[in-house]
């Protein structure tokens, strides 16, 4: 069986809300995990490219998120972004630019904005593996 990651409802909602607010541009943000690897916090960030097809997280916001996470004993364990008009599967650019092999890369698909689709992936050396995202019980 593949990897399963629990996404608390508040984090899922925060990612989807940020994605909807940014549409038609791509939204992006960072995810923090606790010492046990559980997702505990979501940092919506600015897409400095202001683009419908690409994103780059504002480096200063990235740094602030890192400091905030560390101050609570967490680590940044992933990033999320949206595909405003397409399926939530990593694009060739996503695969090429995925720098952190240990991170989870979550994509919010808003092809139908009323039915957001949220999927998670590991991207290691150009290879994409889907991670099953599960809501909290």
């Amino acid at each position: 069986m593949g990897e399963v990651v629990v996404v608390p409802a508040a984090i899922r909602e925060a990612m989807v809300a940020h994605a909807r607010a940014a549409r038609p541009e791509e939204a992006c943000g960072l995810l923090a995990g606790d010492a046990e690897g559980r997702l505990v916090f979501c940092y919506p960030t600015t897409n400095i490219l202001r683009s419908a097809t690409n994103y780059t997280i504002d480096p200063t916001e990235h740094f602030r998120a890192l400091r905030h996470a560390e101050s609570r004993g967490w680590e940044l364990v992933g990033a999320f972004h949206s595909h405003p008009h397409t399926e939530p599967f990593p694009s060739p650019t996503d695969v090429e630019l995925a720098a952190e092999p240990d991170w989870i890369y979550v994509i919010v698909g808003l092809a139908d904005p009323d039915r957001p689709v949220v999927r998670g992936f590991r991207i290691v050396d150009g290879e994409v593996t889907e991670v099953a995202l599960r809501g909290e019980r």
């Binding site: 992006c28 960072l30 097809t53 690409n54 994103y55 780059t56 997280i57 480096p59 990235h62 740094f63 890192l66 990033a79 972004h81 990593p90 694009s91 060739p92 650019t93 996503d94 630019l97 995925a98 720098a99 952190e100 890369y105």
Partner: peptide
Amino acid sequence: TILPAVAGG
């Protein structure tokens, strides 16, 4: 602190 850019498409 060194941070890789977080970017994609």
